[in-house]
Simulated assay, not measured.
Amino acid sequence: MKLIVVAIIACILLIGFSDLASGSDTCPCVLCGPGGKACDQCPERVPLCKDMISILEDVERKVRLCVCGEQTWML
């Protein structure tokens, strides 16, 4: 599960450093989303990233406790 979290973080960072959301010189519109300006009604990238990582860690914990039957002290 930690590998999934690392993969998601890596993808977010790769998209953030790419020029995919920069738009073009011929198009007056500015794309929003990952790697660009946050869309309306969406949080900025850093708080969103932290929130999503927290959600994934909570899911991992619940799976390990409830599905796999691991003890709390093993986490």
Results as ranks from 00 to 15, higher is better:
Ala10Glu: 10
Met74Glu: 14
Cys49Gln: 02
Val5Asp: 04
Met52Cys: 04
Leu75Ile: 12
Gly33Asn: 06
Met1Asn: 05
Cys32Asn: 09
Asp40Tyr: 11
Ile12His: 02
Glu44Cys: 02
Cys66Gly: 06
Pro28Val: 03
Asp40Ala: 12
Asp51Leu: 08
Leu31Met: 06
Ile15Met: 08
Gln71Leu: 07
Ala10His: 05
Arg64Thr: 02
Thr72Trp: 11
Ala38Ser: 13
Cys66Trp: 03
Leu13Arg: 04
Ile8Lys: 03
Val6Lys: 05
Pro47Ser: 02
Gly36Trp: 05
Ile9Arg: 01
Cys29Phe: 12
Cys68Asn: 12
Ser24His: 10
Cys68Gly: 02
Arg61Leu: 06
Asp58Ser: 08
Cys68His: 07
Lys2His: 14
Ile4Ala: 02
Pro43Cys: 03
Gln41Val: 09
Ser22Phe: 11
Leu13Gln: 09
Lys62Tyr: 11
Leu31Val: 03
Ala7Gln: 13
Arg61Cys: 06
Asp51Val: 04
Ile15Asn: 05
Glu70Gly: 09
Pro43Asn: 09
Cys27Phe: 12
Cys42Glu: 07
Ile4Arg: 01
Ser22Glu: 11
Asp25Leu: 15
Ala7Ser: 15
Cys49Asn: 04
Ile12Gln: 04
Gln71His: 03
Asp58Phe: 02
Gly33Lys: 02
Trp73Tyr: 04
Gly69Trp: 01
Ile8Ser: 05
Leu3Met: 12
Cys27Glu: 13
Thr26Met: 07
Lys62Met: 02
Glu60Ala: 03
Asp19Cys: 03
Leu75Asn: 15
Glu60Phe: 07
Val5Gly: 01
Cys49Arg: 02
Pro28Leu: 01
Val6Trp: 08
Ser54Lys: 10
Ser18Tyr: 13
Cys49Thr: 11
Gly16Phe: 10
Asp25Arg: 15
Ser54Ala: 05
Asp58Pro: 07
Lys62Thr: 11
Pro34Asp: 00
Pro34Trp: 00
Cys49Val: 13
Cys39Met: 11
Glu70Met: 10
Asp19Asn: 14
Cys39Leu: 05
Asp40Arg: 04
Ser24Val: 05
Val63Leu: 04
Asp19Gln: 13
Thr26Ala: 10
Met52Tyr: 14
Thr72Cys: 00
Phe17Lys: 04
Cys66Gln: 04
Leu75Lys: 05
Ala21Thr: 14
Val5Ile: 07
Trp73Glu: 14
Leu20Asn: 06
Ile55Asn: 10
Val6Asn: 10
Leu48Thr: 10
Leu3Trp: 05
Ala38Asn: 15
Gln41Asn: 13
Ser18Asn: 11
Val59Tyr: 12
Gly23Ser: 11
Ser54Pro: 04
Cys42Gln: 04
Ile8Glu: 08
Val63His: 03
Val46Leu: 11
Gly16Gln: 06
Lys37Glu: 15
Asp51Gln: 08
Glu70Pro: 05
Ile53Gly: 00
Cys11Ser: 07
Arg64Ile: 06
Asp58His: 11
Gly23Asn: 07
Cys49Asp: 00
Cys32Tyr: 13
Leu20Cys: 10
Ala10Met: 08
Asp25Gln: 10
Val30Asp: 14
